[in-house]
Computed example of a mutant assay.
Amino acid sequence: MDREALWNQLEEAVVHCNRCNLARSRTNTVLGEGNRQARLMFIGEGPGRNEDLMGRPFVGAAGKLLDKMLEAIDVRREDVYIANIIKCRPPNNRVPKEDEAKICLPYLRRQVYLIKPKIIVCLGATALHYVIDKDARITAVRGNWVERKGYYMMATYHPAALLRDPAKKYEAWEDFKNIRDKLIDIKSAKE
């Protein structure tokens, strides 16, 4: 089966998924969006209200901040891929329950498999716990690279956390400069 057919199959599975209670209250599923051959992939927690309404990730205030952060390191949003741990909005934007995340993780793994990014950035503690280390604390490990199965992975603060606590913006800026440098290294190694 070609890649396009595999993407179509994944999209259909997510749109019609009703494996957990989140399916009952969603307006739209939010698979992800961006360059399906991106070197850089961002993974957040899950859709919020705006994302649920539009069926797109990171379109609210946190998404606007993420766009500005990408621009600051000379990366266009359309050149990256953005996804979430879960594909449906939890009630009141609560943190996803473990069983909800575990149900959605195969969809995310399929996305990573199809995209084959070189760099995966986990935005926030929930993404960190399900992608890099379930016992790690974001404040302790953010900004540090982990190499696993051919992927360079890093966690940084979720843009929503930066909106709540602007004092963390300096650390996030350092992380994004680190992401930029890793992208440059990967591009140089390829040439």
Rank of each mutant, 00 (worst) to 15 (best):
D52V: 02
C122H: 08
L31T: 11
G34F: 01
A136S: 08
K116N: 07
V95F: 09
G55P: 01
V75Q: 08
A83H: 02
G150H: 09
Q111I: 03
D133P: 06
L66V: 06
V121C: 02
N50M: 13
R39M: 14
R148D: 13
F42M: 02
K87R: 12
D79N: 10
E174V: 15
R109H: 15
I186P: 04
K168G: 15
R26E: 07
E100L: 07
E98G: 03
N84S: 06
Q37A: 11
K190N: 15
V80H: 02
R89I: 10
R89W: 05
R3W: 14
E4I: 06
V121N: 00
R3A: 09
G48I: 01
C88A: 12
S25M: 05
R180K: 14
I85Y: 00
N178E: 11
C104N: 06
D175V: 11
L10F: 03
L105V: 07
Y170Q: 09
L10A: 05
Y130T: 00
Y81L: 08
K116Y: 03
E174A: 14
D79E: 15
P166T: 03
Y170M: 12
T29L: 15
W173L: 08
G55H: 04
K102N: 15
L183F: 13
Y151C: 07
W145K: 13
N21R: 14
F58C: 02
C20E: 04
G34Y: 03
I103G: 01
M41Y: 04
R56N: 06
P106A: 02
G32H: 08
K134N: 13
D67R: 09
W7G: 07
E71T: 09
I119D: 00
Y157H: 03
K177S: 08
V59K: 00
V131C: 07
K177D: 04
P91F: 10
G150S: 11
Y170L: 14
L105P: 01
V75E: 06
E191S: 12
G48T: 01
V14Y: 02
P91N: 02
L70Q: 06
G124D: 01
K168L: 13
L65H: 06
N92P: 12
V75T: 12
E71V: 09
D185C: 07
L163D: 01
R24L: 09
I138T: 05
G34C: 08
I186F: 08
D165C: 08
R39N: 10
P91L: 12
V141Q: 06
V80C: 02
R137H: 15
L22I: 08
L22G: 01
L128V: 04
A167W: 08
R94Y: 12
A83V: 04
G46H: 01
C17N: 13
K102P: 02
R3V: 11
W145L: 11
N178C: 06
Q9F: 07
R76P: 03
V131R: 00
